[in-house]
Simulated assay, not measured.
Amino acid sequence: MNREQMSRIAHANHPIKSPLDDDSVRALLEHGISRQDARVLDLGCGGAEWLLRALATSPRLHAEGVDISEDALAQAREAAIGLGVQERLTLHRQAAADFSSVHPFDLVLSVGAAHAFGGLLPTLAAARKHLAPGGSVLVGDGFWEKEPSPEAVEMLGDFADLATTLDRVTADGWTPVHGHVSTRRELDDYEWACWGSLAAWALDHPDDPDSSEALSTAATRRSEWLRSYRDSFGFVCLVLRRTSDRP
């Protein structure tokens, strides 16, 4: 089973591929979208779940998404047709770091995709290239709530603590205007959903040649979460504006 297939199954019951519940996603979008006719860009959009939610609630909004996965973009197109918003959604298959826009955006999203840019600050630098004056960036990334184990750092990355993360963001010329730290329930719900969905698929398809691999992967990932990073990993989403954009 390839990585995209496994991810699709794992996220079947948690389409937002980050530890956020529906209320948190809705609130973050509300704080990030300042006008009903906004243009929104998602760098590393996957199946465009954030954009589809924004389009469904704002009938004058237009959105664009960038991702390297044709499978994920195909899912996004199908979902957009189902919601009747396909005319307002443009999708680009390419590396998000290489994307060049033809017009600025009022909101630039990149949640859980900082690895594609080489870290949080490079993600913000990429987002800034597409940002309209006075616009906002909605970014989500990990941080360490407690001192991590070496195994956790190797698995997830070399994050800072929350305060240091915010210090780095503000020193880079950004001002937080809203934020959300994922709760323990959101973090746990995400992990249970991913590895539970993958395990359930394996049990429901015992004759599939990928069943054993899926069940083994679910068990391994669940163990890594519980033993290596559950007590140390946190996730923060920030709505940011450029400090230099102040009147």
Rank of each mutant, 00 (worst) to 15 (best):
G157R: 08
E151V: 14
L131R: 03
E145F: 07
D141P: 10
L131F: 02
E49F: 06
L131I: 03
A132Y: 01
G118W: 10
S149A: 06
A56V: 00
E70G: 15
L156Q: 13
E145D: 08
A95R: 15
L120F: 09
G119D: 09
A76H: 02
A63G: 08
I81F: 11
E64Y: 02
T123Q: 12
S149N: 01
L109I: 14
A114Y: 05
A74D: 13
L138G: 05
R60C: 13
Q36R: 07
D37F: 10
R35L: 04
A80R: 11
V102I: 14
S100E: 15
L124G: 06
V85W: 06
V66E: 00
P148T: 11
S136D: 02
C45F: 09
Q75T: 07
E147G: 15
S100L: 14
V85Y: 02
I33F: 08
E64V: 02
A48N: 03
G118E: 07
A74S: 09
A56K: 03
G142M: 14
V153I: 15
A27R: 11
L28N: 01
P122W: 02
D67C: 03
L91E: 03
L43I: 09
L55K: 06
F143W: 05
L107C: 12
A125S: 10
R35S: 14
V139T: 10
S69Y: 06
I68D: 07
F117R: 07
H31R: 14
H115S: 13
S149K: 06
E30G: 13
G134H: 03
E30S: 09
A74K: 08
V85T: 13
L28Q: 02
L52D: 10
F117D: 04
R39C: 02
D98G: 00
G134T: 00
E151Y: 08
S34I: 04
A126I: 02
G142I: 12
E30W: 04
H62Q: 15
V108N: 10
H130M: 07
S34A: 13
L107S: 04
L52R: 14
A72C: 09
A63M: 02
A54E: 10
K129I: 00
A54V: 02
T90N: 15
G135W: 00
V137W: 06
A127Y: 00
P122S: 08
Q94W: 09
T90V: 15
W50R: 01
S101V: 00
G140I: 03
G44K: 02
